[in-house]
Design a protein around this nucleic acid. Structure first.
Length: 569
RNA sequence: GCCCUUGUAGCUCAAAGGAUAAAGCAGUGGCUUCCGGAGCCAAAGAUUGGAGGUUCGAUUCCUCCCAAGGGCACCA
């Protein structure tokens, strides 16, 4: 990667001047007329290094550049510039950029891949909905962001274990079992039936709080292996999974493992014993807890006063299980921000029990989806938006715009909804709004898909036998590159860096930003310059190469986001 | 009350401590020779919630204040 090469070369120069290169940072200037890369090393060294304090940063930058010149500037540089108050700006030359264009075409769907994660395993816990209720919009973010993070980490050569940690255990099932037992229901067919029971339970419990006791009792029974409870639970699970898998199929979402909380019912004992042995667990108000005064909040609840476990215990057991099975160096939990205290507790306890270091765990806490009035989504109160309804609506709107067929409409509609989520930083809250959710123009999924389809359309219309870029190295002085072409070249090579950054920061939105910018640049290029009818065959070839490369990077980027790239739309 | 997160253009939002704060939507004015107008261009729109501080440099880091959202043990 060119960034590494520049860093290496600059480090050598700094070494010669005995300047520490520890603060060496290369950035892409926000203004393209400030070059492709810039460094502020002179500004940093000029002030932090006492020996050099007499220098002003601009002089130091000059010195650095002069030394570099005397050592011989590398071939990839076109221009180097020193700017007040002491920036060093670097321009890559067009011939080098063209080699990167070839690189995109050569590597194809592998362009952007890197091996920085080689040999490392990451466990990503995402989606993880509570079953026995329909798949709501509330779990959409975790599902989509988690999928994208998994794609990104896979692309960075990590071994990725995506886990759907289903909420299929807990007092909620006590509630449903109670309802079924006391309502003499003949048959339950759908998840919506189950949801109704859940809502009804909460309505009744408002007047009769003692019902909650009943629910806990039933869950306790379930955990103790009561056959009647187990039978009902199993039925709930089957009904739910059938529906959930349909939604996952539509979304194109996959997991390495789908292991719900129920899986850990016989594994919590070990965790509890460890906590007791380490003298971390103490009795409090009849329950077994772990006190965490440093977190300034209630203690972590290990065992309830009735003897049943909590999701905290099961999450701990899951950590133990995952450590044993996969030995991840990183565990990512893509879960909503309302659970951030839970994860603070979980990670703190995991570290205390010796299940890993604090830095091996991270909670990617995404913002919540609110209803327009500011209301919170809540199954209990019946405030739900069903994901499938949202998807259906998205597809309907895509069709209205004139999609060729059902399959394309689905790509566009679902792509729009996914992109709407992913383009923002995970932390932002989202207000659910039917009109905003289905953006089909501007910074949107369909915009990118359209740009991609456009590149493919151009390529289809070209006579491929003429397009022989790989064997004819094109020199830029020969082509007299237009600004629109250069701007594409200056963008394409950055893609691998963007993928890395997105992974490091757990931010798929960085990929969105990048491919949107690329698509804009391509559209400008497309509108201003003829491709197939360019003056010379050489230029036609070059522009087709650009088109191929842009299409490829758009496709790779969209694929990391989990969005399909249609050939036609 | 305590803890966490977030305050950037009318709206939705972007920016590993950098240069003139980036876009999209809405609104304004334009684009029929041609490869897909779900597109393109132009102008307009922001004392980055407020006050201090650290720094050559702060939307970014620190302190305080204000506002919004979330959480505060037997739900997950």
């Amino acid at each position: 990667m060119i960034r590494e090469e520049i860093e290496k070369d600059l480090t050598a120069v700094l070494k010669k001047l005995r300047i520490s290169s520890s603060g060496l940072i290369l950035e892409h200037p926000s203004e393209s007329n400030h070059g492709d890369y810039a460094t502020n090393i002179a500004l940093q060294a000029g002030t932090s290094n006492s020996k050099l304090k007499t220098h002003n940063a601009f002089d130091l930058a000059t010195k650095i550049v002069n030394t570099w010149r005397s050592l011989g500037l590398p071939a990839y540089l076109a221009k180097i510039e020193i700017v007040q108050p002491g920036f060093i700006n670097l321009w890559l030359n067009n011939d080098y950029l063209i080699t990167q264009l070839e690189e995109v075409i050569k590597k194809g769907d592998g362009f952007g891949w890197s091996n920085i994660g080689k040999g490392k395993t990451v466990v990503i816990d995402y989606s993880s909905p509570n079953i026995a209720k329909p798949f709501g919009i509330g779990h959409f973010r975790s599902t989509i962001i988690g999928t994208s993070l998994a794609n990104i980490y896979r692309f960075l050569c990590w071994k990725v274990v995506g886990i759907n940690h289903l909420g299929d255990w807990g007092t909620q099932f006590g509630k449903i079992i109670y309802q079924i037992k006391n309502n003499s229901l003949d048959k339950l067919l759908t998840v919506k039936d189950l949801e109704k029971l859940y809502i009804d339970f909460h309505k009744k419990a408002e007047k009769k709080p003692e019902l909650k006791e009943k629910a806990r009792e039933w869950f306790k029974k379930l955990e103790e292996g009561d056959s009647e409870a187990k039978k009902i639970w199993q039925m709930c699970t089957e009904i739910s999974l059938k529906e959930f898998n349909r939604v996952y199929d539509r979304l194109g979402v996959k997991f390495e493992q789908t292991i719900g909380e129920s899986f850990y019912q016989d594994k919590t004992k070990e965790v509890i014993e460890t906590a007791q042995k380490k003298k971390l667990a103490v009795k409090s108000e009849g329950a077994l807890v772990i006190k965490l005064p440093e977190l300034k909040g209630p203690p972590a609840l290990l065992v309830k006063s009735d003897g049943a476990t909590t999701y905290f215990t099961r999450d701990l057991a899951a950590i133990v299980y995952r450590q044993k099975k996969w030995k991840p160096v990183l565990s990512i939990y893509e879960v909503g921000s309302e659970q951030s205290f839970h994860f603070q507790q979980l990670f703190a306890v995991a570290a205390k029990l010796g299940y890993g270091q604090r830095e091996n765990f991270i909670h990617i806490s995404h913002g919540l989806i609110h209803l327009p009035g500011g209301g919170k989504l809540s199954t209990r109160s019946g405030q739900t938006v069903y994901l499938e309804e949202v998807l259906d609506e998205a597809i309907k709107r895509a069709k209205k715009l004139g999609c060729k067929d059902e399959k394309t409409a689905e790509m566009i509609g679902i792509g729009a909804v996914k992109y709407f989520d992913l383009k923002n930083h995970p932390a932002t809250n989202i207000t659910f709004d039917w009109n905003k959710m289905f953006v089909l123009e501007g910074n949107s999924g369909p915009y990118l898909q359209y740009a991609y389809a456009r590149t493919q359309s151009v390529l289809r219309k070209s006579n491929h036998s003429k397009f022989n870029f790989q064997n004819s190295i094109v020199k830029n002085d020969h082509l007299k590159l237009k600004p629109e072409e250069v701007s594409l070249l200056r963008a394409l090579y950055k893609f691998p860096e963007v993928v890395m950054e997105a992974g490091e920061n757990f931010s798929p939105n960085l990929i969105c930003n990048f491919i949107f910018d690329l698509a804009q640049k391509y559209n400008l290029f497309y509108n201003r310059l003829p491709i197939l009818k360019a003056d010379t065959e050489e230029i036609v070839n070059f522009r087709l190469a650009l088109t191929t490369a842009v299409g490829q990077v758009l496709e790779n980027g969209l694929s990391l986001l989990g969005i399909s790239a249609p050939e036609k739309m």
